[in-house]
Write a protein that binds this DNA or RNA. Structure first.
Lengths: 341, 341
DNA sequence: TTGTACGCGTTATCAT
DNA sequence: ATGATAACGCGTACAA
């Protein structure tokens, strides 16, 4: 058992304890095969006894880079993003890197603080689902050469890689499905419109609606302040308040949280789903399938999103001839009881 | 606009560009008031032009510690833990520290890798919901003086702080509630029994059962391999397979994921909740209230759990006279439609 | 195979 | 108010 109280032992202390030189200790750590088995054993034992722990700050100061990538999540409470994170982790793990998760919780100030800190840490790369993909802060980061990949968002310019899913298409297939099921009055439930996701999905919905030759006024907008369960409930109340002649028979929600809120409110009020109201969500989170009335939803390939994003950031970090690219995945409708009779 | 391509500029480069000494630059960063406004301005402008970013590795090598705490989560996909994380973040943020989230995803090897990395990073403190609270690795960590707080788990010995909720009590109030509602055959749905949580909640259930003078054989155990939605569904099938004479009229599930799975399976099979089967969950995650049949659940004060844990770890990091303590919170039953007629 | 000297970027201590 | 210099712990040439 070690000396007990001494601060944290350094390689120097290990060297002294094992009666070898400092360089040898370093070799045991970094090129074990280069050191004689007997010596190595002695050094390793000394490390164990002293409770030696490598100082990563010193190591990365010397190396000029860390063994870490980070994902700044928009909302850690939304299973969609944790699934993306899991995909990232898969790739990071096999590349021998640690993944740190940061949660901006939809707040720009928090996002800013995290980015600053990560940049100072010299992480190998940053993955982010930003509060605002148009923020100039992202460009500044890129200009200072931190590999950056934007996840589940896009932007006109292309000063960085991005990985996203075709939200317009998602909106289209959702509404096409409802039209196929015979609905002629549909609500789009989502907001705020400042979110690219929301506007794209709404746009897709409108396209499908127009393509079917249906009157625009029969595609109602019920707007939310955020994509949360609570807002979904509130939307449900507003839906119920509409005059029955104009009340939509189906709702396409901008994400599953909203859809679950709507479903809950509907059930509470005795509205039958899908008979009185059919519901389509978006994201296909685990809880969508697990709802008491399983939710039809637009599935995004979340793990693949994460894996691809991680690959891109690693490429940018390692490959000097890296080219930025915008990868777009295709969403897919998963039909369940909430729209099927 | 800066030079363009040069690696990352250091304080040295800033000093040269601003025609001041290295120490002055450092003062601008750390004690701005000590440097003449004119000089400061010049230095700040040089930093901006060069795109200077402090190197946290160097800073913390010098300081001997970082400005970071970490939470190693057991399952980032479970909203319970993300809520705990949010509580931690509240405290960390007001202490000026960054929080890094790591996800062990229930795997001991991943947990080990994260812990090793964090220790090497010299984080100020580690919060963890461990795969196995009895793992000697935690003791080793503490012995090497990394402030450590175990969240939502406990252990006999007390070589570290821990913050938990009284799971026995939780089990008791859940089953008392069911007994009050008139149920005389109840299932406990949960597993594996290697989880302290599960055994404690089961124990509490048994206590309540015995206290009411009910025959032990009427408290059935339906065991799960993990606390997931899928296992809840499977439990539902097994419940349905029981002979109706012995089939419980109510189920107490070890967590909400299991309860939601059970609820889904029940609804699918046309079983009326709560009339044919009443359900109580545990954790009261947001999706519990949002289920189409809102779920009665045992609420744990998750944010407070996180906040308290963070306070403890900060105290251990800063206060030399820190005393380890085991904080226990009290759970609370939230009755909803899944048990109320 | 092992030992030694030097530098990484920052900060704190001194002297000016 | 500002400038010079020595640490912090580790990795790596290079010398032995």
């Amino acid at each position: 058992m070690g000396r007990g109280q001494s601060p944290t032992p350094s390689v120097k202390d290990v060297a002294r304890a094992a009666a070898v030189s400092l360089g040898t200790v370093s070799n045991v750590l970094n090129q074990p095969e280069r050191v004689a088995p007997a010596t190595r054993e002695r050094v390793e034992q000394a490390m164990a006894e002293l409770g030696f722990v490598r100082n990563e700050s010193a190591r990365s100061l010397r190396a000029g880079q860390t063994r870490t990538v980070a994902y700044v999540m928009l909302d850690a409470g939304n299973p969609f993003f944790t699934d993306v994170a899991r995909g990232i982790e898969t790739t990071a793990e096999s590349a021998g890197l640690s993944l740190f998760l940061c949660n901006s919780d939809n707040r720009a100030d928090r996002e800013h603080a995290h980015l600053a800190h990560l940049e100072q840490q010299r992480v190998q790369g940053i993955l982010i689902t930003p509060v605002d993909p148009d923020s100039p802060e992202l460009d500044a980061l890129v200009r200072r050469r931190t590999p950056l990949v934007v996840v589940d968002r896009t932007r006109k310019g292309q000063s960085f890689c991005s990985v996203a899913v075709d939200d317009e298409l998602g909106g289209r297939i959702a509404v096409e499905h409802l039209i196929d099921r015979g609905h002629r009055r549909v609500a789009f439930v989502g907001g705020p419109m400042s979110l690219g996701q929301v506007t794209d999905r709404y746009l897709g919905a409108q396209q499908a609606w127009a393509a079917a030759g249906l009157p625009p006024e029969n595609l109602t907008l019920i707007s939310c302040e955020s994509l949360s369960v609570a807002e979904g409930r509130s939307a449900g109340e507003r839906w119920a308040g509409l005059p029955s002649s104009r009340r939509p028979t189906a709702a396409f929600c901008a994400n599953d949280l909203v859809a679950l809120g709507l479903l809950q409110q509907a059930t509470l009020a005795g509205v039958k789903v899908p008979d009185d109201l059919a519901i389509v969500g978006y994201d296909d989170i685990e809880f969508a399938a697990a709802a008491a009335v399983p939710l039809t939803s637009v599935r995004q390939p979340r793990s693949e999103l994460g894996r691809t994003a991680a690959e891109l950031v690693l490429d940018e970090a390692a490959n000097p001839r890296h080219q930025h690219q915008q990868v777009t995945f295709t969403p897919e409708l998963v039909a369940r009881a909430s729209t099927l009779t």
